[in-house]
Design a protein around this nucleic acid. Structure first.
Lengths: 204, 204
DNA sequence: AAGCAAATTCAACATTTGTTGAAAACTGGC
DNA sequence: GCCAGTTTTCAACAAATGTTGAATTTGCTT
């Protein structure tokens, strides 16, 4: 009796060449991580958006954490280089140039990488540590003794606070008009405040 | 053969009066939510810190989300009242007074409630919406037309960005010395920048 | 003292999650 | 045209999580 029932072809096995699964996973991971954060982003959701099976994450990256590391934590720029470059210009308009560079850098990926970073900083104390060290080493390190003499640590913290607040409102919470304002408007509005943190008096 | 093995007393049933389980859960929830965020905080971890069973969360609050709502989202102050109060004073030192009030408010719970809010904003788009509406309604609503005339929406966003950045660096990422600086130092350092966002020119 | 209501723990369930191993289909070299 | 290697899907597992129901103990009222 065992009639040959409809042969449902199990679509297993290697697919016809042409699809770059690894790159698709990376792109999908950046999207989902930036929307959901590390914990909220499930491997299945990422693989689903890439149109492949969840097991591909392990095959190509060796695990969720490795994928996160490669997709998000590999910053698309060299922070030391940027800071050094900024320091070469005129110190009187350094504040405005910092904002311009900050926005140009993160706007490039639509803010997704910044959002992913913040969402992960918020969820994991370790990532917060990393962010702290990052600012201390790259920003504060180059700032100390070169721009002002008094309270370089506090000044670096103040600048970090304004930059992080700018990033959170523009890329994560997406306030209006902060999220849509053009670079020059924000540079003119925020730059002078950064400048005051750099070279102004902090006790008035 | 079934000899009566050691009678391990099952400590079930109602406990002797004196323990306020509900209050203990609220306190534990504030702690764990602020450390781990909404998703990272497990019901078992909260109940464990409160010294009771996880089922108590459902018994007393009806679920994890209800507990979060009651423990974190019920702000320990009335934002409208605070903003209205701030508006009554002299407008020339409003910036400094905003920072003083901001820090006094959140320092009260050691920043835990602010950290829990930010960690949840980062994880859930809905909470981000809520935060956006909150600022739009309470801060921007009272600001428009009373302090300056031009660009009230952008000014409100700029102030929000500096306040959020201050909160994140002080309570979430715990930068040094930002996390430990006293209120007057920060008020003197940041207040004038808030003041510029309030009444200064934004196009220089 | 009795009985009813409240509070608490325990055990279990259904989901969800990251990961793994095996089977299958494609590719490229000989 | 065969064969080794690579890529892909599928099925399954163990661990963790929010929630629920039953059992049990205590407190309060009469």
């Amino acid at each position: 009796m065992s009639e040959a029932v409809e042969q449902v072809p199990v679509r297993r096995g290697r697919r016809p060449r042409g699809a770059d699964t690894r790159a698709a996973l990376l792109a999908a991971a950046r999207e989902v991580f930036s929307e959901q954060g590390y914990d909220g982003a499930t491997v299945r959701a990422i693989a689903g958006r890439a149109g492949v099976d969840a097991a591909m994450v392990n095959h190509w990256f060796g695990g969720k954490d490795k994928l996160f590391s490669e997709a998000v934590l590999q910053l698309p720029f060299n922070p030391n280089e940027i800071v050094a470059d900024l320091m070469k210009g005129d110190i009187d308009d350094l504040g405005i140039r910092i904002i311009r560079r900050f926005l140009a850098t993160w706007d490039a990926q639509d803010g997704g990488v910044f959002a992913a970073l913040i969402r992960s900083v918020a969820a994991h104390e370790q990532v917060a540590h990393a962010l702290r060290d990052f600012f201390t080493r790259h920003v504060f390190g180059q700032l100390a003794g070169r721009v002002t003499t008094d309270d370089p640590a506090l000044r670096a913290n103040l600048i970090a606070s304004q930059l992080i607040g700018l990033g959170v409102t523009r890329y994560v919470a997406r306030f209006d008009p902060m999220a849509t304002a053009d670079v020059e408007t924000l540079a003119a509005a925020i730059g002078p405040n950064i400048q005051r943190y750099l070279t102004g008096s902090l006790s008035s």
